[in-house]
Computed example of a mutant assay.
Amino acid sequence: MSGLPVLIAGGGIGGLATAVALARKGIASIALERNPAFDEIGAGIQLGPNALAVLDLIGAGGRVRERLIPVGYLEIRDALEGRRLIRLDLRGAFRERFAAGYGVIHRGDLLKALYETCLASDRILLVPSAEIADWEEHPDGVEARGADGRRWNGRCLIAADGLHSRFRQRIVGDGDPIPSGHATFRCLIPPERMPEHCRVDGAVLWAGPDCHLVHYPLKDREVYNAVITVNDGSTDIARGEPVPDADVRRLFDRVGDQARAFLDAGTGWRRWTLRDREPADTWVKGRAALLGDAAHPMLQYAAQGACTAIEDAAVLADRLADDADPGAALDRYAAERRDRTARVQRLSRWLATEVYHPSAASAKRRDAMLLGLDEERLLDHLTWLYTPFGGTA
């Protein structure tokens, strides 16, 4: 096997998880991050048992769990009336079926745990301020060229550069990501500002007409993560711009008093617009492959974007360790991951229209569906999603 390292374009969650997974297999890597530091903007993230099991497998689970909050339940409520539609206890039967558990964590804390795991390995080189402008394939490897003229040689190149991946255009060529028409607003709320009925040990989703609101504790329960989403037809690209509190509240004036009390507690909101892509048949070109959001960007509704990227990292490392031919290894990796991630992409869209945002008669059908699910049936529905790699690898 070539002694050259694997080049990773992107130092986010998917990129650093890939470096960690490769190191566990004895494979050196260079993670090239275009920003001056390896950090994350945003707030909370949910980690299902599929992601936690894989983080344990690749050796990052310990550091992640030091910062993880294992919330007690997931719950969906009607945002108009406040009525509980379904609750899933994350202990008991859930833990028996999915031993890795379920938790929430600040995005920055997750990335920091992965970063620290990388620093502890002598097989990983982290390079900030390294924007890749282009790459070229050679018979024995690839050369990545930085925007500042630096060059790096590797056995293959993994593009973990996110939703707007420049590498995807050469590999897939499917243009810009697809606007969903949804905008998301995020902030952190201290416990003393949260209404009492929202100060709970769970991740609660309030589903309303063309909108939904989510809250759960973060940072040793010292703050609450607030995420609210509206289907307002947005097509612009927003990546965390500040928005006046009053403007946010006006967008959600359709919700009932219980949900509004939580909404009114928030301040310092920032706005993102949501985009995804259709599942792609091609993730690989020669010795270059896509990973995470670059390969299968999905809407947030299944809380699986980071989780599937972490799964990608483990499968990729396994295939590169198994096969001396990097091109063949990348093809096998993509073949193993495409169907599962496409299914999660489709689930995320379905949840938006059928569970989180329906109104009138559609909302009544949603309510009847959720109220008719007992715990065992719900767990059965979730098994494919929450089993690492879908149970197929």
Score class of each variant (00 low, 15 high):
50 N>R: 06
26 G>M: 07
345 Q>S: 04
16 L>E: 06
103 G>M: 11
41 I>M: 14
197 H>T: 03
120 A>G: 00
80 L>Q: 14
133 A>Q: 08
95 R>Q: 09
329 A>V: 09
22 L>M: 00
238 A>N: 08
167 F>H: 08
235 T>Q: 11
328 A>P: 10
90 L>E: 08
227 V>Y: 14
381 H>A: 15
212 H>K: 05
310 I>V: 13
256 G>Q: 01
197 H>A: 06
191 P>R: 07
386 Y>N: 08
114 L>Y: 10
123 R>S: 04
248 V>I: 00
166 R>V: 06
298 M>L: 12
85 L>P: 04
199 R>C: 06
319 R>A: 15
67 R>I: 10
175 G>T: 00
261 A>K: 06
163 L>Q: 00
213 L>P: 13
100 A>E: 02
64 V>K: 01
40 E>F: 03
258 Q>N: 05
217 P>N: 01
382 L>R: 02
250 R>C: 04
331 D>M: 14
342 A>P: 12
293 D>L: 04
117 T>Q: 11
195 P>C: 10
296 H>W: 11
128 P>E: 13
57 L>T: 15
238 A>F: 09
294 A>I: 07
391 G>T: 02
12 G>L: 02
245 D>L: 01
122 D>R: 15
203 A>R: 13
251 L>D: 03
299 L>Q: 09
36 P>A: 13
304 Q>F: 08
233 G>N: 00
218 L>T: 12
354 E>M: 01
137 E>I: 03
104 V>H: 03
159 A>N: 08
315 V>N: 12
182 H>C: 12
335 A>V: 01
96 E>L: 02
174 D>E: 05
137 E>G: 11
53 A>T: 12
44 G>D: 14
54 V>P: 08
100 A>F: 05
270 R>P: 05
309 A>W: 06
51 A>D: 03
122 D>E: 14
286 G>M: 10
163 L>F: 08
96 E>I: 10
199 R>Y: 08
228 I>Y: 04
352 A>P: 10
288 A>Y: 07
317 A>Q: 05
223 V>S: 09
77 R>Q: 02
98 F>N: 05
188 L>V: 10
198 C>Y: 05
209 P>F: 01
266 G>L: 04
341 T>M: 02
126 L>I: 07
291 L>A: 01
177 P>T: 11
13 I>W: 11
382 L>F: 14
317 A>S: 13
264 D>R: 09
273 T>K: 10
88 L>I: 04
348 S>Y: 08
219 K>S: 13
68 L>Q: 07
99 A>N: 09
98 F>P: 02
88 L>A: 01
23 A>Q: 06
52 L>G: 04
354 E>Q: 12
185 F>N: 10
97 R>V: 04
166 R>G: 03
262 F>C: 13
68 L>N: 05
14 G>A: 13
271 R>C: 01
232 D>T: 00
199 R>D: 09
272 W>E: 06
329 A>C: 00
111 L>G: 11
22 L>S: 09
237 I>C: 06
130 A>V: 07
63 R>W: 01
245 D>H: 02
275 R>K: 14
362 S>W: 05
75 E>Q: 15
238 A>G: 09
143 E>R: 15
350 W>N: 06
42 G>F: 09
185 F>T: 06
147 A>I: 01
183 A>I: 05
329 A>R: 07
61 G>C: 11
144 A>H: 11
181 G>C: 01
380 D>H: 05
131 E>A: 15
320 L>D: 12
375 E>F: 10
